[in-house]
Design a binder for these strands. Structure first.
Lengths: 233, 233
DNA sequence: GAGTGGTCTAGACCACAGG
DNA sequence: CTGTGGTCTAGACCACTCG
C-alpha cells in the first residue's frame, strides 16, 4: 500500500479522535516531519482527506477540519425530510446580510418585474445545532414590503411578512437541482467542496393579487436534507 | 494562472479537436516534452482532465480519452425541466438488466411488503440523443405483474404496465436528494465522478386498491435535469 | 525487456493571510 | 515580516501491461 494512503488513514483517525470541526491542523511541514515523510507526500495524503470532505485547505491560513461530530449526530438521525411548503419559508436562524439592489436583466426575468425594479436582497442561513445546513437568498419586491430591510432581524421571513404586512403568501412552482458548492458556499456551510448541494428555486406570490413578492434560492447540504414531495390529487 | 491549468486547457482543446473517444494520448514523457514542462507538472494538468471526466488513466497502458462530443450538444441546450409526474415514469430508452430478487429488510420496509416477497428488479437507462442521462432502478411487486420480466423490452415501463395489465398507477410521495455518482454510475452515465446526481425515490400504487406496486430510484445528471414541482392547491 | 503510469524524495520559489 | 498553503522542477525507483 502506498505511503500516502497509509498516512491518510492514520491522519484521519487522529483527526476523528483529537480534533473538532473548525480547528486547524498543524502545518504541512510539521505533519511531514511527524510522519517522517516528504512534504509532497504529506500533501498527497491530505489531498485524500480534502477530497473526502474531511478537510478544507485555506491558502495562507492553514487546513481546517470540517467534518465534525455534529455532522455525525445529524447523520445518525437520518436525513431531514423537508416538506416543500417549508423550503425557503421556514425559520431561518440568522440573517447574514441585507442589501438594497435593483433587478438586473436575469433577476427581472425570473421575478417578472421590470429591469431596475428595487429589490431587497436578504441572505440567511439555517442552522441545526449550531451547524449551518442551508443558505437561502431571498429577493423581495421592495415596494410591496416597505421598511423590511430595517425591521427584519431573524426567524422566519415568511411569518414576519404575514405578521407585519398582513399579506398571505402562496408558493408558486419550484425547480429542484443539484450542484457542487462554490468556495464561498463551502466555507459558509463548513463543508467540503465535493458535497453536493440541493438547489431549490421558487417564486412566491401574494395570495390575493397574485403578484410575485419573492424569488428565493436555497442551497441545502445533501447529506442532511432530502426534499419531500406530496402529490395533491 | 498556474502552468498546469494552462496546459490542461491547451490539452483539452487538443483532445477535443484531434482525438476520439477510446484513443490513447501520447505518453506523459512525450507530452511533458512537447509542452516544455516537467513530467510532474504535466501529470498535474492531466489530473484536471481526469477529474473532469475527459481522460481515464490505465496503469501500464496509457491514458485514454473517454469523453464524448454529445455532452456538449446537451449542455448547449440548457437543462431539461422535468415534471415530477414524469420522473421515473416516462419512456426509458433501454433496459439494462432484469432480475428476480426477493425483498431484503431494507427494501421490504420501503415497499411495505414482507421480507422475502418476490420482486422484479429492472434497471433502465434514459438517453437523449444517444447520451445516457438518467438511470432508473424499478422494484416491482412480482405477483401483481406476472410475466413482466419476460415481456417488457423497452420504452415506458408505466405505459407498458397500464397497457398490458389494465392497471392504473398513482404516484405516491417522492423524496429528492443529491449525491455524487459511484464509479459504476459515472461510467454508465459517461460523466465525471464530480458531477452531482439528482436522486428521486418514489413509490407508486395501484389507483384502485392502493397497493404499492413499485418503488423506484432514479439518478439524473444535474447538468441536464432540473425537477419541476407544481403545487396543486 | 521496453514502455507506461504511480510514488517518493528534494529543493526552490510564489501567493496569500495576518500581525 | 513570518508562516501558511500552492506550484514547479529534477531525478529516482516501483508496479503494471504487453509483446
Amino acid at each position: 500500500m502506498a505511503v500516502y494512503l497509509e498516512v491518510a488513514e492514520a491522519l484521519e483517525s487522529d483527526i476523528r479522535n483529537h480534533f473538532d470541526s473548525g480547528q486547524f491542523l498543524p502545518s504541512e511541514m510539521e505533519l511531514a516531519e511527524r510522519f517522517s515523510i516528504n512534504r509532497h507526500t504529506l500533501r498527497r495524503a491530505v489531498d485524500e482527506l480534502v477530497n473526502a470532505g474531511l478537510l478544507l485547505r485555506q491558502h495562507g491560513k492553514g487546513t481546517m477540519v470540517v467534518d465534525n461530530k455534529i455532522e455525525y449526530s445529524l447523520r445518525s438521525k437520518g436525513r431531514f425530510t423537508e416538506s416543500l411548503e417549508d423550503i425557503g419559508l421556514q425559520a431561518s436562524c440568522e440573517v447574514i446580510s441585507i442589501r438594497e439592489i435593483s433587478a438586473d436583466i436575469k433577476l427581472a426575468k425570473r421575478m417578472w418585474v421590470e429591469v431596475g425594479t428595487p429589490i431587497t436582497h436578504i441572505e440567511t442561513v439555517r442552522c441545526i445545532e449550531q451547524a449551518p445546513v442551508c443558505l437561502i437568498s431571498h429577493y423581495l419586491v421592495s415596494h410591496l414590503l416597505p421598511g423590511i430591510a430595517q425591521t427584519f432581524k431573524e426567524g422566519s421571513l415568511h411569518q414576519w411578512i404575514e405578521m407585519q404586512y398582513q399579506k398571505k403568501i402562496r408558493r408558486d412552482q419550484s425547480l429542484i437541482g443539484a450542484s457542487l458548492p462554490t468556495r464561498a458556499e463551502a466555507l459558509q456551510l463548513k463543508c467540503s467542496r465535493s458535497l453536493p448541494l440541493i438547489i431549490v428555486r421558487s417564486n412566491n406570490r401574494l395570495k390575493e393579487s397574485n403578484e410575485i413578492i419573492e424569488y428565493s434560492v436555497s442551497r441545502s447540504r445533501s447529506d442532511v436534507f432530502e426534499m419531500k414531495i406530496n402529490p395533491e390529487e
